[in-house]
């Protein structure tokens, strides 16, 4: 995204893509026999139409947008991606492995991952925080909110 114009254009295209996706699936909504003029597709159709209009408007206004280069926003996309992967693995294992183990591991790794470059990760401290948080949250949910978080491999609680 070097210029505002490019960013606006990309956004317009995303809006149109979402509109296209939504429109296709709107027409796949089954209708009941004898449905009136107003039925389950009415609202989605209206929204799809609005998305198309917004997308086109966005592309039209993007033509007039600033061509000057944007200030570079430094994004550390590698860390973002690693965080995303970590979160996905965490949620995927949440139920089979259980809350306590996954949360402990997730927190521990996430702490390390987000540690500022000029600092050394303090593994012992991270481990203790991760352990205390997972146990505390589990206990609160189990004993006062009556919600059993996934137990997974640890079933003796």
């Amino acid at each position: 995204m070097k210029t505002q114009k490019m960013q606006d254009r990309v956004f317009g295209i995303i809006v149109l893509a979402v509109a296209a996706f939504y429109t296709v699936f709107t027409f796949l909504i089954p209708l009941k026999e004898g449905s009136d003029i107003i039925n389950a597709r009415t609202m989605p159709l209206l929204l799809a139409a609005l998305m198309w209009i917004l997308g086109v408007c966005q592309l039209v206004t993007a033509r007039k947008a600033d061509d000057k280069p944007l200030e570079k926003e430094a994004r550390d996309l590698r860390t973002v991606l690693k965080t995303a992967v970590l979160i996905v693995v965490y949620i995927a294992l949440f139920e089979p492995v259980g809350f306590l183990i996954t949360t402990f591991v997730y927190l521990f790794l996430q702490f390390i991952l987000l540690t500022p470059a000029d600092k050394k990760p303090n593994y012992l401290f991270y481990g203790i925080v991760a352990l205390v948080v997972s146990l505390f949250v589990y206990a609160i949910f189990r004993y006062s909110l009556d919600i059993i978080l996934p137990q997974g491999l640890i079933t003796f609680f």
Binding site: A92, L93, V97, I101, F108, L109, I112, G152, L153, T155
Partner: peptide, 27 residues
């Protein structure tokens, strides 16, 4: 070093996940 640790714990977690299925029926 950090990377290795990250990878090994991740692998460990995945392994635990596959074991989970067997673990439950025993109890």
């Amino acid at each position: 070093k950090k990377k290795q640790l990250f990878a090994s714990v991740l692998a460990g977690a995945l392994l635990l996940g596959t074991l989970a299925g067997c673990g439950n029926s025993a109890s």
